[in-house]
Nucleic acid binder design. Structure first.
Lengths: 156, 156
DNA sequence: CAAGATTGATTTCTCAATCTTC
DNA sequence: GAAGATTGAGAAATCAATCTTG
């Protein structure tokens, strides 16, 4: 009569809370960005990555980053950004196969305009609710998780 | 010359890691479920909620739960589950407006078949990579976040 | 009129397939 | 043949609008 080996109660609630927190935070952040600056969260993330890169330029492959998006997802989003003039796409000089995305002046302006409201919300919903100890511990746990997820992409 | 007030370095990396961990975990879990049992993650969650409810039944409103899905998203997913016979929808006895979803025998079987592989993956990717201390701390941080997100749905 | 639930239009994500260059 | 990037088909999420009953 013993079905599957379910999770222990605290394991289950932690997992459920993780999924819930991630979903709700993603939704709230998305809403705020779209409403206040017309950018989606993914687009904002692309702009930030370009802003942080030397020369405001990055290969598509490098823009994929930490797993927030896939190759085709990125192609789509950069396409959207290019359509509204926030990003420029050019062939890569050293590798004819590659494409380099570059932040335009308008993209720079859009990022600068969007950042304050976005960062306020992140502080309000993600940073301020936690004590310093909680935040630090969360950081360490997330580092361990991301390491695991990146280094053993598949089963074992 | 001072642009927006950016996050501190550790705040930024924690936020980015949170988004990355959530996205990757969601994707990996989704893939495993779809491949091995033909269920999406959202569908699996619905089945678990029904399984945990007395009589295997829940009002649509109650099935929404902790913010993982919205009203119309749920309608869609329960529709899919009903189409393949894992869930049954009936009018609510006490409130003619309401709809009650019930786990069918086939739904029960599908959940029992899908659970072991799913739970193994959750253990592998979310529980085992963390020390007990990390996991406990993560749980406490997530509880604080979810409380915040649920109790102050909007600005203030 | 408010609450419960569904529908429709639009947007975005995912996956497999493709094309080009290394 | 493998890597970099795009495309197209299909699934699924969002929001506003609608319909029905309390």
């Amino acid at each position: 009569m013993s079905g599957p080996r379910w999770l222990e109660e605290n394991q289950h609630s932690t997992w459920v809370n993780f999924l819930a927190a991630a979903t709700i935070l993603n939704r709230r952040v998305e809403q705020q960005l779209v409403t206040d600056s017309g950018l989606s969260a993914r687009q904002y993330e692309v702009l930030v990555m370009l802003y942080s890169a030397p020369g405001g330029s990055l290969r598509m492959t490098d823009l994929i980053g930490v797993g927030r998006t896939t190759k085709s997802g990125l192609t789509y989003q950069v396409g959207q950004l290019e359509k509204v003039g926030l990003v420029r796409r050019e062939a890569c000089a050293t590798d004819e196969r590659g494409v380099v995305a570059t932040l335009t002046d308008a993209g720079w302006d859009a990022l600068r305009a969007a950042a304050p409201g976005h960062l306020d919300l992140v502080r309000e919903l993600f940073i301020d609710p936690l004590t310093d100890e909680q935040f630090t511990a969360l950081g360490s746990a997330l580092t361990a998780l991301v390491d695991r997820l990146q280094n053993q992409p598949d089963g074992e």
